Simulated assay, not measured.
Amino acid sequence: MAESKLRQLLHNLDTELQKTPGLDEKQRQQIASIRQEVAAVLAEMGSPAQSKDRIGEAVGLFETSHPQLTLILEQVIDTLAGMGL
């Protein structure tokens, strides 16, 4: 259940990134890195604790300028936590 939710959140993140104006290249790279880490967690190859920390850092950077991205990232963190990761 949580795995399918994470997959859906990754899809939502990709969709939101496509329609979010004003992201600079560094911000896009940071989101891409986070997306890869979450995908690695799904593939049981990544470090979940490190991924949650990096996602948390991104939330702080995007919370005022891109609230929809922030919401999706917070949902990813909650889902990882719900999985016990």
Rank of each mutant, 00 (worst) to 15 (best):
I72N: 04
E37H: 10
I34A: 12
G22V: 07
G46M: 05
L9V: 07
S65R: 12
H66K: 14
V76C: 03
L6F: 05
L23C: 02
S65I: 07
A2I: 09
A43Q: 13
L10R: 06
P21M: 09
Q30K: 15
E63I: 05
R35M: 06
Q50I: 09
K5Q: 14
Q8R: 13
F62W: 01
Q8Y: 07
A81Y: 04
V76W: 00
T70P: 02
A39S: 12
R54T: 08
L23W: 03
V76H: 01
A32S: 15
I72A: 01
A81C: 02
D14L: 10
L61H: 08
P67F: 03
K26G: 07
E16S: 02
A43V: 06
V38R: 03
S4L: 12
S47Q: 10
G84M: 06
Q30W: 05
Q50K: 13
K26D: 13
L10N: 10
P48E: 04
L73I: 04
D53Y: 07
T79I: 04
A49V: 15
E74Y: 00
P48R: 03
L9W: 03
P48Q: 02
S33D: 11
F62P: 01
Q30M: 11
T20C: 13
A2W: 08
R54N: 14
A49K: 14
Q30L: 14
L9I: 06
G84R: 01
S65D: 12
E44L: 10
A58H: 04
I34V: 11
V41P: 02
G60D: 11
G56R: 07
L80V: 06
A81E: 12
S51N: 04
K52Q: 10
Q27D: 13
M83G: 04
I55R: 03
I31C: 07
A58K: 06
S47F: 03
I77W: 00
A58W: 05
E74S: 11
G60Q: 11
F62Y: 08
T15H: 10
G82S: 15
M1F: 05
A40G: 15
E25Q: 15
R28E: 12
V38W: 01
L85Q: 09
N12V: 01
S51T: 15
Q75N: 11
Q29N: 15
K5A: 11
T20D: 09
L61A: 09
E25A: 15
A32E: 12
T70L: 00
K5M: 09
T15M: 06
K5I: 14
I77S: 02
P67Q: 03
H11V: 11
R35S: 10
S47P: 05
V76Y: 00
G56W: 02
E37L: 11
T64K: 11
P48K: 01
Q18Y: 07
E44Q: 14
S47M: 06
L80K: 05
L6N: 05
P21C: 05
L17S: 07
L10S: 06
K19V: 15
I31W: 03
Q75I: 00
L73Q: 06
A39Q: 14
I55E: 01
G56K: 06
K52E: 08
R7P: 02
H11A: 12
H66S: 08
I34K: 00
K19H: 13
E63M: 07
Q50M: 07
H66F: 15
P67H: 05
D14H: 12
Q68P: 01
A43K: 13
Q68F: 02
A39I: 08
T64S: 10
Q29H: 11
M83Y: 04
H11Q: 14
L85M: 13
